[in-house]
Design a protein around this nucleic acid. Structure first.
Lengths: 206, 206
DNA sequence: TCACTTTTTGACCAATTGGTAAATACACGA
DNA sequence: TCGTGTATTTACCAATTGGTCAAAAAGTGA
C-alpha cells in the first residue's frame, strides 16, 4: 500500500511474464500482429489463454511490450558507433554488430520488419521520437568523416539503409537464403562479403 | 460444350477478377495472408463478399493467384541478365531494374517479403522449382565473369542477396525510409548510391 | 420481346477470435 | 497448519471470420 503502482513482482510473475513474451515473440515474429492469436501464444507458452490475460491486459499490450523492449536492443549497435574512433573501422564494426544481431536475434528482426511492412501502426511514434534523432546524429558524424577526407563521399543516409538491409536480410529472408544456399549457415561468407562491399565503397584512396 | 474447362471469360468476369486481385494486393501486401480478411478485400474492390467468392473459390485461391502472377514479374529482371554482355554493365543494369521494380511495384515487393518472413508457406515449392535453378545459373555466369578477371572476385550468392536486399529495402521499409528522409521520394539518391556501391565492389582494377 | 444464362445479393452458418467472470487450486508467511 | 492473497482453470460471451445457398437481378442473344 506504500506505492500506488505494483510493488514487486513475485517469482512466478517474473517467470510467467518472461514465458509469455518469449512465446509471443515466436508467434508475432512469424505471423505478425493480426495474424497471431492468443491461443497460439498460450500454447507456445504452455499456459491457458485466460491465464495469459491475467498477466497482460490483452493481445495489444503483449505486442507493444515486445516492441518497446526491442527498440533499445535495435538502436544499440548504432549508438555504439563512436565519432572519435577510426571512421572505416567504426563503420565496419557497426556492420559486424548488425550482422551478429541478425544471426543472434532473427525473431526480433522479423518482428521489426513485419511491423514496418504493415505501416508501423504501433511503432511510428518510436521511429520519429527515438530512431530519427539518432539517425540524424550519426549521419552528421559520417558526413563529418567524409568532409575531412577520411571516407569516400557518399550519401550517409543511403549508406545506413544499405547496412540495415544487407544485414537484416539474413534474418528476415532466412527461408529464402536457406533454399538458395542449401547450407543452413550463411554466416561465414556473409561476413567476408559485406566487409569487402563496404570497405571498397568507403576507402578514401582506391 | 466444346471444352470441358471454362470457355472464354466474359467482359464482366475479366473486369471483376482484375478488380479483386488489385484490391487483394492492397490488402495482402499490408496485412499478410492471415491478417487480411475477405471483407477488407471486398470493400476495397467495391464488391460484396459472396460476389468475390463467385469469382474465386476462397481466400487462399486469391492469394496463390497473386503469388503466381508475381513470381514471373519477380524473376524477370534476373532472367534478363545476359551472360554475353559486359559484366559490370549487366550487373549494374540488373541493380537498376530491381530498384525500378521496388519503386513501381512496392506492393508486390511487400507481398513477397511478407510471404518469406512467415516461412513462405505458399511459396516454398516455387522457390525451389523456379528461383533456385535460375539463381544457380546466374551465379555460375557471374562466377565465370570473375574467373576471367572481368569482375573482382566475391561470392556471387552474397552479391545477389545484397542486390535484392538493398533495392527491395526502399519498398518494404518505405515507411521507415519516409520518416528518416522526410522527403517522400528517396529515389534519386538511392540510384547514385547503389551504383557507386556495386561498381566499387566489382570493378576489377581499383 | 422473351427465354436463358450470368451476376449479384441477403440471409445465414459454423468455427475462431479476443476477452470476461466466477469458482477453484495453490503458495507461503505467521 | 491455517488463512490469505496469488494463480489457474472452467465455462462462457459477443464479435468476427471464411464460406454457403437460394433467390433476385441483370445481361444477352434470338
Amino acid at each position: 500500500m506504500s506505492d500506488a503502482s505494483e510493488k514487486k513482482p513475485s517469482r512466478i510473475q517474473l517467470r510467467n511474464r518472461a514465458l509469455i513474451l518469449e512465446a509471443a515473440l515466436d508467434v508475432f515474429s512469424v505471423h505478425g500482429f493480426r495474424g497471431a492469436t492468443l491461443d497460439q501464444i498460450a500454447d507456445a507458452a504452455g499456459l491457458s489463454k485466460p491465464n495469459i490475460l491475467y498477466y497482460f491486459s490483452g493481445k495489444e499490450e503483449i505486442h507493444t511490450t515486445l516492441l518497446n523492449q526491442l527498440m533499445e536492443t535495435w538502436l544499440d549497435p548504432l549508438v555504439e558507433m563512436d565519432a572519435d574512433g577510426d571512421p572505416l573501422a567504426e563503420l565496419l564494426a557497426y556492420v559486424q554488430r548488425k550482422l551478429d544481431m541478425a544471426r543472434d536475434l532473427p525473431r526480433e528482426s522479423r518482428l521489426f520488419a513485419g511491423e514496418i511492412i504493415t505501416g508501423a501502426p504501433h511503432m511510428l511514434p518510436h521511429l520519429r521520437a527515438d530512431l530519427k534523432p539518432l539517425f540524424d546524429e550519426k549521419c552528421a558524424v559520417i558526413q563529418g568523416w567524409m568532409d575531412t577526407g577520411k571516407l569516400a563521399p557518399v550519401d550517409p543516409r543511403h549508406l545506413i539503409f544499405s547496412i540495415w538491409s544487407t544485414t537484416q536480410h539474413y534474418a528476415d529472408f532466412a527461408v529464402q537464403v536457406g533454399v538458395l544456399m542449401q547450407t543452413d549457415d550463411a554466416a561465414p561468407g556473409a561476413d567476408a562479403y559485406l566487409r569487402a562491399l563496404f570497405s571498397n565503397l568507403l576507402n578514401p584512396t582506391p
